[in-house]
Amino acid sequence: MLIRIRRAGDVRESEITPESLYLSRRLFLAGGAAAALGLSVNPARAEAALRALGPMRKSAFSTAEERTPYEAVTNYNNFYEFGLDKEDPAAKAHSLQPRPWSLRIDGEVARPQTFDVDDLIAKTPLEERIYRLRCVEAWSMVVPWVGFPLSSLLSRVEPTGKAKYVAFETLHDPMQMPGQNKEVLEWPYREGLRLDEAMHPLAILAVGLYGRVLPNQNGAPIRLVVPWKYGFKSIKSIVRIRLTERQPRTAWNVAAPDEYGFYANVNPDVDHPRWSQAKERRIGDFFRRDTLMFNGYGDEVAQLYSGMNLRRYF
């Protein structure tokens, strides 16, 4: 089950094929078994090789922990725009058209702008950030993202003195995102950060993983990654960023305010009403491990919350 994908630089197209064939054959077998039982495992699918991203710097923020295999990162996703099961996004996200894509940034800024995402990728120095990802459902992964600090983009639009929060919105297009035909969440998916959180160097906009552009199911073509917060904060397929004076609405907080707070910082001491957050299962592990405060990024981010009651502002 360990499928190693090499760094972008040294993978040639011809080398991709055997691997994706192998993958689709294996998924086909499992899919057959599952289909016989009415289980939903994604069907065989020979994924077209995704474009490799250009040179990228390494980052001191990266963890040295073992990376979760590409196959797991791209086949086990929460992306309700494509269905509620973890396998749905991989099976159904082909209807999303991530290119061309524009990203609008406005609100309390001096220079509102619309960016073409590929243009942005070409003109922005990229970094690899290998981060832990902790889902609110008590599982975790280690993902080698490719992206750039959110702060670099926000600085370019020059937030005004009134800007206190940053609001993000996913694409709203039920043709491309059929899950939006069902009212499971308030569409479009919305997320938000305090401006100082958004300006923190750990917060990035990711445009790729494992050296290649983002697969659709992982939030192509551009998504947020805030590694010290539960995964649902890291909004996918972003079309709009707005700087605001007031705390913005966020999808899960609207859906279940007692279960999902605006902050949603990873915190082993504050349980979800229906399960404990003290431990987590790293995908691929048998034993659960202890969940770390701020997902292990406390040294970097704890000062953002000094003096705050994190039980109240969960």
Partner: peptide
């Protein structure tokens, strides 16, 4: 049969990448 199927699903990764959670549901 559903129990016997597990003997096949588990070794072939038929329960996906988080098999314990999927096993709870199954």
């Amino acid at each position: 049969l559903p129990a016997l199927a597990l003997l096949w699903l588990v070794p072939t990764d038929g329960l996906g990448v988080n098999p314990i959670r999927e096993g709870m549901h199954y």
